[in-house]
Structure formats: C-alpha cells, structure tokens
Amino acid sequence: MDQQARSSRIGLEFAQEMKRQSQRERFVSWAPLAVLALLVLLFSLTAEGFFSLKNLQNVLNQVSIPLVMSMGMTFVILMGSTDLSAEGLGGFVGSVTALMVLNSKTTLDMGFLAVVIAMVASVLVSALSGLMHIKGKLPSFMVSYAVSNIMAGFAVLAYRGEPALIRDPFFTVLAQGDFLGIPYLTFIALGVFGVSYVLQTRTRFGSYVMAIGDNEAIARNIGINIDRTKLKVFLWLGVCIGLVGFMGAVRIGRGEVAIGSNVVFPAITAVVVGGTSLSGGKGGVVHSLLGAFIVTVINNALVLLGVSPYVQQAVQGIIIIVAVALSIQHGKSLIVK
C-alpha cells in the first residue's frame, strides 16, 4: 500500500514538474524577442541616431549576411552538429564569382550564370564535407574546419593575391539599391528566412532534423533515414554559404578570401542568442532571425555610441554573454553540454 502511494506521489510530482518545465519553456521561448526589444529600447535612449529611419535601413542592410548564414547554421546546430566551412567556402564562392562576372582581372562576363556556377560549387563542396562527416563518421567540426582551409587555399589560388573588382552594373545595383527603402540584399535574406521557415515547419525534413537533434537513436529506431536527412542539411547549408559568399562579394565590390572571415561565429552567436540549443533539438529559424538582429543591433549601436575601439570588443563580448544568459533555457533540470 505504502509502495503504491509513494509511486503515485512520485508520478504526480513528475507531472507537476513537467508542467512547470513546459510553462518555463513557453516563457523562455519569448525571451530572445524581449532581449531584442530591450536592446532597441536601451540603444534608442542612449545612442544618437539609432532610432531613425536611416539607421533602420542600415540595420536591415547589415543583418542580411548574418541572417542568411544563421539560416544555414540553424539546421546544422538543430541536429547537434557544428560547421565551420563557411569561412573558406564563402571566401571561395565570393572570389570565383568576382572572377567570372564582368571584372577587373579576367575577360569573363558570365553575368548571373557565374552566380549559379559558384552556388553549385558551394553546394557540392558542402555535400562532400557532409558525406565525410556522415559516411566517414568524422566529427563535423573537424571536417568542416579542414574543408574551410582547403577552399581558402583554392580561393587564394584563383586570384593570386590581387582580388578582382566587380564591374558588372547589375551587381553594383544589387549591392546598393533598395525597394521601398529596404535594400535588395535584405529581400534576398528575408527570402532565405521564408524558405527556412517552410523547411522547418511545413516539411517532414524539418521534423526529422528536430528528432535527430533530440535523440538520434530514437529517430533511427522509428525509421527516419538519418544519413539522408543529414545530407540534406549540408546541401541547404551549401546554398546558404554560397549566398553569403556571393552577397559578401557584391557588398564590398570585389572577390577576396576575407569575405568568409568573421561570418561563422557571428552566425553561431545569432543562433545561440536566439535560443537554439547547441546540443540540438531545440529552437529554430525564427529564434535565429531574432538572434541575427540582436547581433547586428549590438554591432551597429556600439559604433553609434562612439564606444572607443579599445574597449568595443570587450563590451560586445559582455553584451553577448548577458544576451545568451537571458535568452537560452538553462533551468536546473537541463544539462548544458
């Protein structure tokens, strides 16, 4: 009798705890939005020129690359992996695109076809990187780091020290033009977000990625084709990295390997600040959208505030830690890996 009472009490406590947790999760899932709102409020009050139409356009322009990168990265992180290949691969795509469109260095003038070729190359390389991880059972972190180095090498080889300047007027307009005050590149980024949202919420692929991140063994047992789903994640990542490389080249008007530098960690930061768990299974693209805005707004405001460059990086680091602490789920019941 005693035994029975105890087990029913444990059951009740468990149910109550689960309820508390789900309430907390629901509350916490709004946290990134609250953090963003808080930052916007704070900077509007303190940074001259922050709350203005001109700066809104500016932020929308600057969020485009981190947003696209974080859309590719979200799926990778959702399934519990990490990928660093964008640094070299993005630089490679940007470099060769600049060499294939009308430019200062080669006689080629392939126009939009150049972008398609570079994108296909990006997807293939990312697929190859994914296959080495999936079939070769090598850690994605290491494989992608190696692939990044290889592609950075190819990028440098492609332009041999003197980056090509983009002369194609179409791409110049793409970089600098806007529609209703919103830069064209931002439309591309929002389009990528839209596709990512559909992929995550309206397709089986999206559910599979979540299931794999949550528990790969269970996902395998219920018949999900793990390898194929993972490969698709890397294909999508390849599309996003390709776009990042292309947009980076268009934005600075030339193709150099440095286009890829400083895109990976801001994107991972955006994903995590947005509330997606690094160990997989929790979060999603809407979170990353908010995360990308948080990261961009911080960068933007520190310059507007005129923070001394000597302390800027430190200040940025502190804000990121506070933002992560506020926006991710870290209740007692969760294990942080």
Binding site: E48, S52, R251, I252, I259, N262, N299, N300, L304, P309
Partner: peptide, 24 residues
C-alpha cells in the same frame, strides 16, 4: 567626429562607414 578600428578589413570598414553615414 569619431575614431573606429576597422582591423585592416574591407567588410568591417564597410559596416563601420555605413554606421557613420547613418549617424552623422
């Protein structure tokens, strides 16, 4: 008006200059 570090990098300098143009 302001003094910022672009770290010798094109992309970072672009972003900083955009912010200056929004502010001043």
């Amino acid at each position: 008006l302001d003094d910022q570090a672009g770290d010798w990098a094109t992309a970072k300098a672009l972003t900083i200059a955009e912010n200056w143009l929004a502010k001043y």
